[in-house]
Structure formats: C-alpha cells, structure tokens
Simulated assay, not measured.
Amino acid sequence: MTQASLHLTLRAMSRDTVNTICAALPGADWSEPFGPGHDVWKVGDKIFAAIGAQGTGVSVKTPDVETAQMLIDAGVGVKAPYFHKSWIHLPLDAETEELRHRITASYDLIRASLTKKAQAALAPRA
C-alpha cells in the first residue's frame, strides 16, 4: 500500500468513525445541506457536527468562545471555518475517544438549547 492510499484509507475510516459516533446519538439526523460530500449532523434541526467535502476534520460546538480558544491554544483543534468562534475543527485522525467526547459534548449543548417539547420528543441519551 502506498503512502497516499494509506492516507486516504485513514481519512475514510475517520469519517466513518465520526459518522458512527453521530448516528448513535438519539434523534441525530444526517444530511448534506451544503452539497454532496458534506456530512452534517443535526438534532432538532440544529447542527452539532459537520465534516466538509475536503474531509480534513469535524467541526463541533463548544460552550463558549473562551473554551474554543483554550482548545485551540492546547492544540486540540483549530478555528472551525464558516462557523461561529465557539466552534472548533478537530482533525479526523484525532483519537477516537477524543472525537467521541467532543462530538457528544457538542450534541449535549445543542440538545439542551432545544425547546422543552423538542427535548421531550427525543429518546434519553445513554
């Protein structure tokens, strides 16, 4: 296997990993609102995770701008392109548990921002 094909294989596996993590969350819906190749995950019609067509990483919400900046300063991620400053962009080759933690934290933040009625319609998160 060449270095280039290994890199593409790792990227594909990581995109699949992110999508698997997102799909397991109650009420999570996948769509491509920005066109083919953009994996966008929503709960209650609000985005909690997004992978761009270039597949360089996954963008997730943090509680606030300060948390996002702290994570950027710590080298966990970078500023998420096209999103508010409270979002970060994690590389797809990050550790699976780090991806799971950041994705579920983003999901929990977005889910908590939904109306009480919308929250009640969702299955509990295990």
Results as ranks from 00 to 15, higher is better:
49 A>L: 04
110 I>H: 02
44 G>I: 04
74 A>F: 07
63 P>V: 14
48 F>W: 04
35 G>F: 06
6 L>P: 01
91 P>G: 07
83 F>T: 09
67 T>A: 14
16 D>Q: 15
88 I>N: 09
49 A>S: 10
96 T>R: 13
98 E>R: 15
86 S>R: 10
51 I>A: 01
15 R>M: 11
62 T>N: 09
20 T>G: 07
99 L>E: 01
27 G>Y: 07
8 L>V: 07
76 V>K: 04
70 M>E: 13
45 D>W: 06
38 H>F: 07
5 S>C: 02
42 K>I: 03
49 A>K: 00
115 T>R: 03
111 R>N: 00
99 L>G: 04
5 S>A: 09
96 T>G: 03
73 D>G: 01
110 I>C: 04
112 A>L: 06
125 R>Y: 11
44 G>Q: 05
19 N>A: 02
102 R>S: 06
112 A>I: 13
88 I>F: 10
31 S>T: 08
32 E>M: 10
76 V>Q: 03
102 R>V: 13
25 L>D: 00
81 P>W: 15
7 H>I: 13
10 L>T: 11
125 R>A: 14
122 L>K: 12
57 G>N: 02
90 L>Q: 04
120 A>T: 09
4 A>W: 03
123 A>F: 11
39 D>T: 08
9 T>Y: 10
97 E>G: 05
89 H>M: 13
14 S>A: 15
1 M>L: 12
71 L>V: 05
21 I>E: 00
74 A>S: 09
114 L>R: 08
102 R>W: 15
63 P>F: 07
92 L>H: 00
35 G>S: 05
29 D>V: 15
25 L>A: 08
73 D>P: 00
18 V>H: 02
14 S>H: 05
106 S>M: 14
68 A>E: 06
31 S>K: 13
86 S>T: 12
118 A>G: 03
66 E>W: 05
122 L>C: 02
51 I>V: 09
84 H>L: 12
55 G>Q: 07
70 M>H: 14
126 A>N: 15
15 R>I: 13
52 G>L: 02
17 T>Q: 13
89 H>T: 04
93 D>M: 15
52 G>D: 10
91 P>H: 09
95 E>R: 13
88 I>V: 15
105 A>M: 14
95 E>M: 05
72 I>G: 04
49 A>R: 02
119 Q>M: 15
28 A>Q: 05
121 A>N: 12
86 S>I: 04
126 A>W: 11
102 R>E: 10
110 I>L: 06
101 H>A: 15
11 R>V: 06
79 K>S: 15
91 P>V: 02
108 D>T: 12
45 D>R: 07
65 V>C: 07
8 L>G: 06
12 A>P: 04
